[in-house]
Computed example of a mutant assay.
Amino acid sequence: MTGEFNDAVSAEVLPEDRAFEAALRPKSLDELVGQDRVREQLALVLEAAVARGRTPDHVLLSGPPGLGKTTLAMIIAHQLSAPLRLTSGPAIQHAGDLAAILSGIGEGDVLFIDEIHRMSRPAEELLYMAMEDFRVDVVVGKGPGATAIPLEIPPFTVVGATTRAGLLPGPLRDRFGFTAQLDYYAAEDLYDIVRRSARLLDLSIDDDAAREIGSRSRGTPRIANRLLRRVRDYAEVRAGGHVDHGVARAALELYEVDDLGLDRLDRAVLDALCRSFGGGPVGISTLAVAVAEERETVEELAEPFLVRLGFLARTPRGRIATPAAWRHLGLTVPQDVAQLSFDDAE
Protein backbone atom coordinates (compact mmCIF):
# COMPACT_ATOMS: atom_id res chain seq x y z
CA MET A 1 0.00 0.00 0.00
CA THR A 2 1.92 3.01 -1.21
CA GLY A 3 -0.63 5.81 -0.97
CA GLU A 4 -1.96 7.55 2.11
CA PHE A 5 -5.50 7.31 3.39
CA ASN A 6 -7.38 8.44 6.47
CA ASP A 7 -6.67 5.88 9.19
CA ALA A 8 -9.41 7.42 11.34
CA VAL A 9 -12.09 5.63 9.33
CA SER A 10 -10.24 2.43 8.46
CA ALA A 11 -11.66 -0.69 10.07
CA GLU A 12 -8.21 -2.31 10.00
CA VAL A 13 -6.38 -2.65 13.32
CA LEU A 14 -3.48 -0.22 13.68
CA PRO A 15 -0.66 -1.14 16.10
CA GLU A 16 -1.12 2.02 18.17
CA ASP A 17 -4.82 1.23 18.61
CA ARG A 18 -4.46 -2.24 20.14
CA ALA A 19 -4.09 -1.11 23.76
CA PHE A 20 -6.82 1.50 23.26
CA GLU A 21 -9.26 -1.06 21.88
CA ALA A 22 -8.40 -3.62 24.58
CA ALA A 23 -9.30 -1.11 27.30
CA LEU A 24 -12.73 -0.53 25.75
CA ARG A 25 -13.70 -4.12 24.99
CA PRO A 26 -16.80 -5.43 26.82
CA LYS A 27 -16.00 -8.39 29.05
CA SER A 28 -19.36 -10.20 28.91
CA LEU A 29 -22.38 -10.64 26.66
CA ASP A 30 -24.37 -8.39 29.01
CA GLU A 31 -21.92 -5.53 28.37
CA LEU A 32 -21.93 -6.02 24.59
CA VAL A 33 -23.93 -3.38 22.72
CA GLY A 34 -25.79 -4.36 19.54
CA GLN A 35 -25.86 -7.69 17.67
CA ASP A 36 -28.92 -8.64 19.75
CA ARG A 37 -29.78 -11.80 17.81
CA VAL A 38 -26.21 -13.11 17.86
CA ARG A 39 -25.91 -12.36 21.58
CA GLU A 40 -29.08 -14.31 22.35
CA GLN A 41 -28.08 -17.26 20.19
CA LEU A 42 -24.55 -17.40 21.57
CA ALA A 43 -25.77 -17.11 25.16
CA LEU A 44 -27.95 -20.19 24.64
CA VAL A 45 -25.08 -22.17 23.13
CA LEU A 46 -22.75 -21.33 26.03
CA GLU A 47 -25.28 -21.74 28.84
CA ALA A 48 -26.43 -25.12 27.52
CA ALA A 49 -22.85 -26.36 27.28
CA VAL A 50 -22.05 -25.22 30.82
CA ALA A 51 -25.23 -26.85 32.14
CA ARG A 52 -24.24 -30.15 30.51
CA GLY A 53 -20.69 -29.86 31.78
CA ARG A 54 -19.28 -30.14 28.26
CA THR A 55 -17.31 -27.92 25.94
CA PRO A 56 -19.58 -25.96 23.56
CA ASP A 57 -19.70 -26.52 19.82
CA HIS A 58 -17.09 -24.81 17.68
CA VAL A 59 -18.10 -21.26 16.74
CA LEU A 60 -17.58 -19.43 13.45
CA LEU A 61 -17.85 -15.63 13.51
CA SER A 62 -18.28 -14.03 10.10
CA GLY A 63 -18.52 -10.39 9.08
CA PRO A 64 -16.63 -7.29 7.93
CA PRO A 65 -13.66 -5.93 9.91
CA GLY A 66 -14.29 -3.98 13.10
CA LEU A 67 -17.63 -5.50 14.16
CA GLY A 68 -16.37 -7.34 17.24
CA LYS A 69 -15.30 -10.85 16.24
CA THR A 70 -12.20 -10.80 18.44
CA THR A 71 -14.22 -9.25 21.26
CA LEU A 72 -16.78 -12.05 21.03
CA ALA A 73 -14.03 -14.67 21.15
CA MET A 74 -12.73 -13.10 24.36
CA ILE A 75 -16.24 -12.98 25.78
CA ILE A 76 -16.77 -16.67 24.97
CA ALA A 77 -13.64 -17.60 26.91
CA HIS A 78 -14.69 -15.32 29.79
CA GLN A 79 -18.21 -16.77 29.92
CA LEU A 80 -16.73 -20.29 30.03
CA SER A 81 -14.03 -19.30 32.55
CA ALA A 82 -11.57 -20.89 30.13
CA PRO A 83 -8.10 -19.87 28.92
CA LEU A 84 -8.05 -18.18 25.50
CA ARG A 85 -5.32 -19.02 23.01
CA LEU A 86 -5.02 -16.66 20.06
CA THR A 87 -3.52 -17.23 16.64
CA SER A 88 -4.33 -16.36 13.03
CA GLY A 89 -4.68 -18.09 9.69
CA PRO A 90 -1.64 -16.43 8.10
CA ALA A 91 0.51 -17.67 11.01
CA ILE A 92 -0.48 -21.31 10.36
CA GLN A 93 1.13 -22.13 7.04
CA HIS A 94 2.17 -25.71 7.79
CA ALA A 95 0.47 -28.62 9.49
CA GLY A 96 3.33 -28.62 11.98
CA ASP A 97 2.48 -25.07 13.04
CA LEU A 98 -1.02 -26.16 13.99
CA ALA A 99 0.20 -29.37 15.63
CA ALA A 100 2.49 -27.31 17.86
CA ILE A 101 -0.44 -25.15 18.94
CA LEU A 102 -2.75 -28.10 19.54
CA SER A 103 -0.15 -29.97 21.59
CA GLY A 104 -0.40 -27.23 24.21
CA ILE A 105 -4.21 -27.14 24.36
CA GLY A 106 -5.79 -27.94 27.72
CA GLU A 107 -9.24 -29.32 28.42
CA GLY A 108 -11.94 -26.72 27.85
CA ASP A 109 -9.56 -24.17 26.30
CA VAL A 110 -10.82 -21.78 23.64
CA LEU A 111 -8.64 -21.54 20.53
CA PHE A 112 -9.31 -18.36 18.56
CA ILE A 113 -8.14 -18.43 14.93
CA ASP A 114 -8.49 -15.02 13.30
CA GLU A 115 -8.67 -14.86 9.49
CA ILE A 116 -9.24 -18.60 9.49
CA HIS A 117 -9.86 -18.54 5.74
CA ARG A 118 -6.17 -17.81 5.20
CA MET A 119 -4.87 -21.07 6.69
CA SER A 120 -2.93 -23.38 4.41
CA ARG A 121 -4.72 -26.43 3.03
CA PRO A 122 -2.54 -29.01 4.92
CA ALA A 123 -3.23 -27.16 8.19
CA GLU A 124 -6.97 -27.08 7.42
CA GLU A 125 -7.04 -30.84 6.91
CA LEU A 126 -5.30 -31.35 10.24
CA LEU A 127 -7.79 -29.03 11.91
CA TYR A 128 -10.72 -31.09 10.56
CA MET A 129 -9.62 -34.11 12.57
CA ALA A 130 -8.81 -32.08 15.66
CA MET A 131 -12.24 -30.38 15.69
CA GLU A 132 -14.20 -33.59 15.07
CA ASP A 133 -12.25 -36.36 16.81
CA PHE A 134 -10.02 -34.37 19.20
CA ARG A 135 -6.95 -36.09 17.85
CA VAL A 136 -4.34 -35.49 15.16
CA ASP A 137 -1.77 -37.64 13.46
CA VAL A 138 1.68 -36.07 13.62
CA VAL A 139 3.91 -37.32 10.81
CA VAL A 140 7.51 -37.89 11.85
CA GLY A 141 10.19 -38.32 9.19
CA LYS A 142 9.96 -38.28 5.40
CA GLY A 143 9.57 -40.71 2.58
CA PRO A 144 9.06 -44.46 3.11
CA GLY A 145 10.31 -44.22 6.68
CA ALA A 146 7.75 -41.64 7.76
CA THR A 147 5.44 -42.68 10.60
CA ALA A 148 2.24 -41.13 11.92
CA ILE A 149 2.05 -40.71 15.68
CA PRO A 150 -1.50 -40.19 17.00
CA LEU A 151 -1.82 -37.24 19.39
CA GLU A 152 -4.89 -37.18 21.62
CA ILE A 153 -6.24 -33.70 22.39
CA PRO A 154 -8.56 -32.91 25.29
CA PRO A 155 -11.96 -31.47 24.31
CA PHE A 156 -11.65 -27.79 23.36
CA THR A 157 -13.56 -25.15 21.41
CA VAL A 158 -12.40 -23.51 18.19
CA VAL A 159 -13.63 -19.98 17.57
CA GLY A 160 -12.88 -19.00 13.98
CA ALA A 161 -13.21 -15.47 12.62
CA THR A 162 -13.43 -14.59 8.96
CA THR A 163 -14.23 -11.59 6.82
CA ARG A 164 -14.69 -13.85 3.78
CA ALA A 165 -16.74 -16.88 4.72
CA GLY A 166 -17.07 -17.85 1.05
CA LEU A 167 -13.38 -18.77 0.97
CA LEU A 168 -13.76 -21.40 3.68
CA PRO A 169 -13.85 -24.97 2.33
CA GLY A 170 -17.17 -26.73 2.90
CA PRO A 171 -15.69 -29.45 5.16
CA LEU A 172 -14.28 -26.79 7.49
CA ARG A 173 -17.52 -24.79 7.63
CA ASP A 174 -19.45 -27.97 8.39
CA ARG A 175 -17.43 -28.62 11.52
CA PHE A 176 -18.65 -25.44 13.22
CA GLY A 177 -21.76 -26.13 15.27
CA PHE A 178 -22.75 -22.48 15.44
CA THR A 179 -22.16 -19.78 12.84
CA ALA A 180 -22.81 -16.11 13.62
CA GLN A 181 -23.06 -13.49 10.90
CA LEU A 182 -22.26 -10.07 12.38
CA ASP A 183 -24.09 -7.15 10.79
CA TYR A 184 -23.24 -3.46 10.67
CA TYR A 185 -24.47 -1.55 13.73
CA ALA A 186 -27.43 0.81 13.85
CA ALA A 187 -26.75 4.49 14.61
CA GLU A 188 -28.39 4.20 18.04
CA ASP A 189 -26.14 1.27 18.99
CA LEU A 190 -23.08 3.24 17.91
CA TYR A 191 -24.28 6.17 20.03
CA ASP A 192 -24.43 3.81 23.05
CA ILE A 193 -20.94 2.51 22.23
CA VAL A 194 -19.51 6.03 22.02
CA ARG A 195 -21.14 6.98 25.35
CA ARG A 196 -19.78 3.84 27.01
CA SER A 197 -16.28 4.39 25.64
CA ALA A 198 -16.34 8.05 26.71
CA ARG A 199 -17.21 6.97 30.28
CA LEU A 200 -14.34 4.49 30.32
CA LEU A 201 -12.00 7.22 29.05
CA ASP A 202 -13.37 9.69 31.61
CA LEU A 203 -14.24 12.03 28.73
CA SER A 204 -16.96 14.64 29.10
CA ILE A 205 -19.21 14.47 26.03
CA ASP A 206 -22.70 15.73 25.16
CA ASP A 207 -25.36 13.41 23.77
CA ASP A 208 -25.50 15.31 20.46
CA ALA A 209 -21.75 14.97 20.07
CA ALA A 210 -21.88 11.21 20.74
CA ARG A 211 -24.62 10.84 18.13
CA GLU A 212 -22.59 12.86 15.63
CA ILE A 213 -19.60 10.55 16.07
CA GLY A 214 -21.77 7.44 15.88
CA SER A 215 -23.51 8.59 12.70
CA ARG A 216 -20.17 8.98 10.90
CA SER A 217 -18.75 5.60 11.95
CA ARG A 218 -19.82 3.48 8.95
CA GLY A 219 -21.82 1.16 11.21
CA THR A 220 -18.56 -0.08 12.76
CA PRO A 221 -17.68 0.07 16.50
CA ARG A 222 -13.93 0.05 15.84
CA ILE A 223 -14.28 3.17 13.70
CA ALA A 224 -16.56 4.79 16.28
CA ASN A 225 -13.91 4.31 18.97
CA ARG A 226 -11.17 5.54 16.64
CA LEU A 227 -13.13 8.70 15.78
CA LEU A 228 -13.79 9.24 19.48
CA ARG A 229 -10.07 9.06 20.08
CA ARG A 230 -9.42 11.76 17.46
CA VAL A 231 -12.22 13.95 18.80
CA ARG A 232 -10.80 13.57 22.30
CA ASP A 233 -7.40 14.80 21.06
CA TYR A 234 -9.04 17.82 19.44
CA ALA A 235 -11.08 18.62 22.56
CA GLU A 236 -8.09 18.38 24.91
CA VAL A 237 -5.94 20.67 22.76
CA ARG A 238 -8.51 23.19 21.49
CA ALA A 239 -11.67 22.97 23.57
CA GLY A 240 -10.73 22.53 27.22
CA GLY A 241 -11.40 18.80 27.21
CA HIS A 242 -15.21 18.89 26.84
CA VAL A 243 -16.83 17.53 23.67
CA ASP A 244 -20.01 19.26 22.57
CA HIS A 245 -21.69 19.03 19.18
CA GLY A 246 -19.65 21.88 17.68
CA VAL A 247 -16.36 20.42 18.91
CA ALA A 248 -17.22 16.99 17.49
CA ARG A 249 -18.14 18.44 14.08
CA ALA A 250 -15.03 20.61 13.98
CA ALA A 251 -12.77 17.68 14.87
CA LEU A 252 -14.34 15.36 12.31
CA GLU A 253 -14.11 18.06 9.65
CA LEU A 254 -10.43 18.47 10.45
CA TYR A 255 -9.90 14.74 9.95
CA GLU A 256 -11.87 14.86 6.66
CA VAL A 257 -14.76 12.66 7.75
CA ASP A 258 -17.98 14.00 6.27
CA ASP A 259 -21.59 13.72 7.47
CA LEU A 260 -22.04 10.24 5.97
CA GLY A 261 -18.67 8.92 7.16
CA LEU A 262 -16.86 9.29 3.83
CA ASP A 263 -13.16 10.07 4.15
CA ARG A 264 -10.59 11.54 1.76
CA LEU A 265 -10.12 8.27 -0.13
CA ASP A 266 -13.85 7.71 -0.59
CA ARG A 267 -14.37 11.20 -1.96
CA ALA A 268 -11.29 10.92 -4.17
CA VAL A 269 -12.70 7.73 -5.72
CA LEU A 270 -16.08 9.36 -6.35
CA ASP A 271 -14.49 12.54 -7.65
CA ALA A 272 -12.28 10.66 -10.10
CA LEU A 273 -15.17 8.46 -11.20
CA CYS A 274 -17.49 11.41 -11.86
CA ARG A 275 -15.13 14.17 -13.01
CA SER A 276 -12.42 12.21 -14.79
CA PHE A 277 -14.42 9.31 -16.22
CA GLY A 278 -17.88 10.79 -16.64
CA GLY A 279 -19.39 8.42 -14.10
CA GLY A 280 -17.92 5.27 -15.64
CA PRO A 281 -17.88 2.45 -16.33
CA VAL A 282 -14.19 2.25 -15.45
CA GLY A 283 -11.98 -0.63 -14.32
CA ILE A 284 -10.88 -0.81 -10.68
CA SER A 285 -7.17 -0.75 -11.60
CA THR A 286 -7.61 2.43 -13.65
CA LEU A 287 -9.61 4.00 -10.83
CA ALA A 288 -6.88 3.12 -8.31
CA VAL A 289 -4.21 4.75 -10.49
CA ALA A 290 -6.37 7.89 -10.76
CA VAL A 291 -6.43 8.29 -6.96
CA ALA A 292 -2.77 7.24 -6.50
CA GLU A 293 -3.62 4.18 -4.41
CA GLU A 294 -3.11 0.45 -4.69
CA ARG A 295 -5.94 -1.51 -6.25
CA GLU A 296 -6.40 -3.52 -3.05
CA THR A 297 -6.76 -0.33 -1.00
CA VAL A 298 -9.58 0.97 -3.17
CA GLU A 299 -11.23 -2.43 -3.48
CA GLU A 300 -11.12 -3.33 0.22
CA LEU A 301 -11.36 0.01 2.04
CA ALA A 302 -13.38 2.41 -0.12
CA GLU A 303 -15.50 0.36 -2.47
CA PRO A 304 -17.57 -1.72 0.02
CA PHE A 305 -18.78 1.39 1.87
CA LEU A 306 -19.55 3.27 -1.33
CA VAL A 307 -21.57 0.30 -2.59
CA ARG A 308 -23.45 0.12 0.73
CA LEU A 309 -24.37 3.79 0.43
CA GLY A 310 -25.58 3.29 -3.12
CA PHE A 311 -22.94 5.65 -4.53
CA LEU A 312 -21.11 3.08 -6.63
CA ALA A 313 -22.21 0.04 -8.63
CA ARG A 314 -20.02 -2.84 -9.75
CA THR A 315 -20.96 -4.05 -13.20
CA PRO A 316 -19.34 -6.49 -15.65
CA ARG A 317 -18.06 -3.48 -17.62
CA GLY A 318 -16.56 -1.68 -14.61
CA ARG A 319 -17.44 0.66 -11.74
CA ILE A 320 -20.25 3.19 -12.24
CA ALA A 321 -21.16 6.21 -10.13
CA THR A 322 -24.87 6.37 -9.31
CA PRO A 323 -26.94 9.58 -9.40
CA ALA A 324 -26.66 9.72 -5.59
CA ALA A 325 -22.86 9.96 -5.90
CA TRP A 326 -23.12 12.92 -8.27
CA ARG A 327 -25.52 14.68 -5.93
CA HIS A 328 -23.31 14.03 -2.89
CA LEU A 329 -20.43 15.78 -4.65
CA GLY A 330 -22.70 18.71 -5.50
CA LEU A 331 -22.59 17.92 -9.22
CA THR A 332 -25.42 17.95 -11.72
CA VAL A 333 -26.46 14.43 -12.66
CA PRO A 334 -25.94 13.95 -16.41
CA GLN A 335 -29.02 12.88 -18.32
CA ASP A 336 -27.46 9.64 -19.50
CA VAL A 337 -26.49 8.73 -15.90
CA ALA A 338 -29.97 9.53 -14.59
CA GLN A 339 -31.43 7.08 -17.09
CA LEU A 340 -28.97 4.25 -16.37
CA SER A 341 -30.25 0.93 -15.10
CA PHE A 342 -28.19 -0.86 -12.48
CA ASP A 343 -29.96 -4.17 -12.87
CA ASP A 344 -26.77 -5.75 -14.20
CA ALA A 345 -24.67 -4.69 -11.20
CA GLU A 346 -22.66 -7.49 -9.68
Rank of each mutant, 00 (worst) to 15 (best):
D206C: 05
L182Y: 08
L200W: 08
D202K: 15
L200P: 12
I205N: 03
T162F: 01
Y191K: 10
E188L: 14
S204H: 10
E188I: 07
A180V: 01
L167K: 15
A161C: 13
L200C: 14
P171S: 03
A209N: 04
T179A: 10
G177S: 11
A180Q: 01
D207P: 05
P171K: 05
L167Y: 12
D207S: 09
D207F: 14
A209P: 06
A210G: 04
D189T: 03
Y191A: 05
P169T: 11
I205H: 08
T163W: 02
L201C: 10
R196Q: 11
R195C: 08
Y185H: 14
Y185M: 09
R211D: 01
T163M: 00
D192W: 13
T162G: 00
L167E: 11
P169W: 14
D206M: 03
L182T: 05
G177H: 01
R195I: 10
F178C: 11
A186Q: 15
D206R: 09
R211T: 08
E188T: 12
V194G: 05
A165I: 13
R211W: 01
A210I: 04
L182M: 10
A180D: 03
A198I: 07
L200S: 14
I193Y: 03
R164Q: 11
R175P: 15
A198D: 02
D202R: 15
T162R: 06
L172R: 06
S204E: 01
A187H: 14
L172A: 00
D174P: 15
G160Y: 00
T179N: 08
S197M: 07
D183I: 14
D207N: 11
G166A: 14
I205W: 01
V194N: 01
T162Y: 01
D202A: 12
D207I: 07
D192M: 14
R196W: 08
E188W: 09
F176D: 00
R175F: 05
L168H: 03
